[in-house]
């Protein structure tokens, strides 16, 4: 269970980091919390020649949350900081909740938000609510930054839209709309140290009448190689006032879209069942929250 031999860099500034990323390219891995990276390296799944430890770069950390202006979260912000941030809990409760469900307390104090995305595990907790809320990521390189929606950044299992010399530097969260709410839920065998067999987030925005759905985004985790954004749920629900029957129909639609696999954690059949249950529960919960009940 020993790591391969690698060269270790600990840059102190973003430019220095980007210079290293540009120079070392795919032979390098970025070390933030290391809670996923060290595990896969010990298992010899990957053996990078270089590690770039970004923990000394202050600019990559922190939550910048201003009234009316959404939020910007640095890639190396610890999940525990997000979990306990009063600003995040108030504005993005689904994200705070999801961050608090990752691994154990020890893990959350090490692991970063960027790492949870860049590990690109289908079962990751935080990408699901982030995608539901319409978060974008900033990808930086020496030649500049580009922004893209998170759902386009994660391409598949351990696959990211990241060119040579690029790294993820921050998450940009839009200000939640008036009369909107996002909720997150998961299912696993236990309530800590768990890899979810399904997780899900639902973001609902209502019209001025506080009843008609204007926007809805349902995102499923752990049932597809990347966060799966439902197409059918918005088609069914936008412009509608939600009823139990409609919610049931939408939940069944989500169930139909999910493409889970069988593995040691759960069967595909069970996962599909759970998609329906979580979709039903979350649609009800988010709808009620958006209505302000």
């Amino acid at each position: 269970m020993f790591l391969n031999h690698f060269e270790y860099f600990a840059p102190k500034a973003p430019e220095e980091t980007l210079e290293l990323v540009g120079r070392l390219g795919s032979k390098a891995k970025i070390l933030a919390g290391g809670t996923d990276l060290m595990v896969v390296m010990k298992a010899k799944a990957i053996s990078p020649e270089y590690l770039i430890d970004i923990n000394g770069v202050e600019e990559f950390k922190g939550i910048f949350c201003e009234e009316g202006k959404g939020a910007v979260i640095g890639t190396n912000t610890k999940l525990a900081e997000i979990q306990f941030s009063e600003a995040i809990k108030a504005k993005y409760p689904a994200l705070a909740y999801a961050a608090g469900e990752v691994g154990s307390s020890q893990v959350r104090h090490m692991a970063s938000l960027g790492g949870n995305t860049c590990n690109a595990s289908p079962a990751a907790e935080t990408p699901t609510p982030l995608v539901a809320m319409g978060a974008k990521v900033a990808v930086s390189s020496l030649s500049g930054d580009r922004e893209l929606p998170l759902e386009e950044f994660i391409l598949g299992v351990r696959k990211l839209d990241l060119a040579e010399g690029e790294m993820l530097t921050k998450f940009i969260l839009p200000e939640p709309a008036q009369k909107s709410a996002c909720r997150y839920a998961y299912m696993g065998r236990r309530d800590a140290m768990e890899i979810d067999c399904v997780n899900m987030a639902v973001n609902i925005e209502l019209a001025n009448d506080s009843e008609t759905v204007m926007e809805v985004k349902l995102v499923m985790g752990s049932v597809y190689p990347r966060p799966l954004v439902s197409r059918e749920v918005p088609a069914l629900l936008i412009g509608q006032k939600l009823s139990d029957e409609l919610i049931e129909k939408a939940a069944e639609a989500a169930q139909g879209e999910a493409k889970p696999i069988d593995d040691i954690r759960a069967s595909a059949e069970y996962r599909r069942e759970i998609v329906k249950v979580l979709a039903r529960r979350l649609l009800k919960e988010a709808y009620a929250a958006a209505k302000g009940v």
Binding site: R190, A192, M193, I264, R265
Partner: peptide, 16 residues
Amino acid sequence: HLNPNFHDYKTPTTME
């Protein structure tokens, strides 16, 4: 073995 670790061999935690 498919679950020779505490990741996938699930023991209950204090939460349970």
